[in-house]
Design a protein around this nucleic acid. Structure first.
Lengths: 285, 285
DNA sequence: GCTTGTTTGGAATATATATTCCACTGTAAA
DNA sequence: TTTACAGTGGAATATATATTCCAAACAAGC
């Protein structure tokens, strides 16, 4: 019996991958990565794009007990339709029923909820961010002799993202990691002409506030990314970029903050074409 | 000359509607309301659904100067692909034109681009994630006596996000930080009953592969989060969660990976109500 | 009501497409 | 080195699909 649903097929594809021959693996790679192509192209075209012969494609379909490529393709077409008209909500319902607890909060419902909430918050990010402020922020990063990045606890992933990306843009940057609780020492030598990127969310960690204080006293610039434009430390900052991350069931996300960080870094990348990290980035781990 | 783009065709469809015969109008109604059907179904099926004969469909296509139904269908297929799989570059061009800053790449246009791309990739995350696999992943985390998190370089922010959140759920977890280049030692004592959450993206860092190898040899479970379900290491993993992050202008985002991490952690939180970290989380910095 | 021109549906045809078959290649075991 | 066998690509075939053609139905004008 061939798989009767796209999900079933996907599962078999990954389970039985190691058992496949070389060409069949190539097909498997292609179809998992380009399901839309399988749905829309003809067998010959799919075969060509996947770098194999058409008959190999049929063998592949037969391996998973389809009558031929066409049979398998039907599943892909159906999946595309479902995805298009947002039928994935049905999948959630089906799952809840199958586990016998309809009102239950499953991992999938949470994923769907978070996905949607994050999509919305990205929408507000686009709407509410002020272009002028954003440009000034990029100016600030561009001019800085050195960039220090301070964001702790929940904000730490954003810190690391900045550190990674700025390093790849060949900028002189230091993430304040808090390693050995030496965060104060890590920032002690900041000076005028340098920049602190501070990332802080309510209830605003004292340590981040201290960093802002230090940077301010030493005459350095400060770019503050925060959930509130008037949070403590905002007055001392050169530029404040407010960002409203989604909250679902009491959990706050980082999506918009990460997206903003991304946009800042890449705008910077486009300002210094000699260091455009396109290839660089592709070879990352 | 037949319309060369979907938009052109749409325009002609509405402009010339009054000139069409009764059946041709019916066809026109159907194709404007069900473009996906035109893209995915065969001529016979489309004709049937539209309530006309197949030859009428061909006449309809001929009316708009296509060689036949197939020619027209190509346009619909292409349109579907563009809309679906983030042909961002096309839409980016339209976006820049509409803002009137064609050649100029400003920080704001980049933010808008990334925002949109990430929104779409969150959509595909919801569509493409298999509910069963996701639930199994949460099971795995729940059962684990200890959780080790390994994801380096670009994946490191995700590692830190896991570490932060799992700690707040009072789980015994260790982020493999690579501090002092002791990453191998950090994982050396993993054992059966424990779990490695590995996060890796093309081109798949050797160090992460080594972690998977170690965990596997020691009989521990492995949850792999990757951009390819068949990437090296997938065969040794207990569960693989594939995630397709957006790519714009050669830069790849982390949004979907972060969102997936979030959903996993919070689903876990709901399984252990005694440790529900709602308040905990709100007091984070 | 008849004629003319247009529209329509069905059968026949043409074409595109998938599938099968077979000979060849490469690989592992004897 | 030889043998056996799974894997592969190309040509031949079968099938599905689209397209054309024609006769019938219909509508408008005479």
């Amino acid at each position: 019996m061939p798989p009767s649903s796209f999900d079933q097929l996907q599962k078999r594809l990954s389970d039985e991958y190691p058992l496949l021959s070389r060409r069949l693996k190539e097909v498997c790679d292609y179809v998992t990565q380009h399901p839309q192509s399988v749905a829309l192209d003809t067998a010959a075209v799919v075969a060509d794009k996947a770098g194999v012969h058409a008959s190999t494609l049929v063998r592949f379909a037969n391996y998973f007990e389809f009558s031929g490529f066409s049979g398998m393709q039907k599943l892909y077409k159906q999946h595309l339709l479902d995805a298009l008209q947002g039928n994935y909500n049905d999948r959630i319902a089906t799952l809840s029923k199958s586990t016998g607890q309809e009102g239950d909060i499953t991992a999938m419902t949470l994923l769907a909820e978070f996905g949607s909430a994050n999509q919305e918050s990205l929408g507000t990010l686009k709407e509410q961010t002020d272009p002028t402020t954003l440009t000034q922020a990029v100016d600030l990063i561009e001019r800085a002799a050195a960039i220090h990045i301070g964001g702790v606890r929940r904000a730490f992933p954003v810190t690391m993202y900045f550190a990674y990306t700025l390093a790849h843009l060949r900028r002189n940057c230091h993430a304040i990691s808090g390693l050995g609780l030496m965060h104060e020492d890590q920032l002690a030598n900041i000076r005028a002409g340098e920049l602190l990127i501070a990332i802080t969310f309510a209830p605003y960690a004292d340590s981040t506030q201290a960093m802002i204080e230090t940077a301010h006293n030493n005459g350095a610039d400060i770019l503050l990314i925060s959930d509130d434009a008037n949070c403590p430390g905002a007055a001392r900052s050169t530029i404040v970029l407010p960002v409203a991350d989604a909250e679902v069931r009491g959990f706050r996300s980082l999506t918009s903050s990460m997206c903003l960080a991304q946009a800042l870094c890449i705008a910077l990348g486009y300002r210094q074409p000699e260091a455009r990290p396109l290839d660089d980035n592709r070879t990352q781990h």
